[in-house]
């Protein structure tokens, strides 16, 4: 595990990418690391492309804006086209192939293709492709302890939505084992 992990999560608004980013950020917080989460905001939130930058580091974080991610979760074509080429050497790309037609060349990184949206629908919770992707990213990078991932999920889902918490945990498992 490197000292710093810079993640970009990108896709359409409504896919829960900001939430998945928050999950990763909470993992860092629980393990007492320096953490930042920065969304793109504005009109693009409303149905256009949405992305957020998450940084986990053992040192204070300078710029929270990630331009060259060590890890990319991409959930639509424009996002993978935009960010795959700028992923760092040895980085990881998780691509939701249900929504992505072609993955651009990114020889510097490891690209993991999975039909996350289809997998979520098959499992009966189609809103949780984001979490499946996050689970898959964890399986590849182990950006935190496994236990932390589930603790972070408890922080991110409000207590009054206990049912959602269970579904989210299931989605994590699906992603981790995909």
């Amino acid at each position: 595990m490197s000292n710093t992990l810079n993640v970009v999560l990108a896709g359409f608004g409504g896919q829960g990418l900001l939430f998945a980013g928050k999950l990763i950020a909470y993992c860092g917080l629980i393990e007492d690391r320096h953490v930042s989460w920065l969304p793109s905001y504005g009109p693009e939130m409303r149905g256009g492309t949405a992305n957020c930058s998450v940084c986990l580091s053992d040192e204070p974080i300078g710029s929270p804006l990630v331009l060259n991610p060590d890890a990319l979760i991409a959930m639509n074509q424009p996002s993978i086209d935009k960010f795959a080429p700028v992923v760092t050497d040895g980085g990881v790309i998780v691509a939701d192939m249900t929504l992505i037609g072609s993955v651009p060349e990114a020889p510097q990184a490891t690209t993991i293709q999975l039909p996350a949206t289809q997998m979520a629908e098959d499992a009966g919770f189609k809103q949780l492709a984001n979490i499946i992707c996050a689970g898959r990213l964890w399986a590849e990078t182990h950006f935190c302890e496994e236990e932390t991932l589930f603790k972070a999920m408890e922080k991110c889902v409000p207590a009054r939505k206990a049912q959602m918490l269970e579904l989210n945990k299931q989605a994590l498992h699906i992603g981790m084992n995909a």
Binding site: A25, W37, P39, Y41, I61, P64
Partner: peptide, 10 residues
């Protein structure tokens, strides 16, 4: 600024 306002940190 917008970055500080929008970003989350511990």
């Amino acid at each position: 600024d917008g970055m500080l306002g929008q970003m989350m940190e511990p």
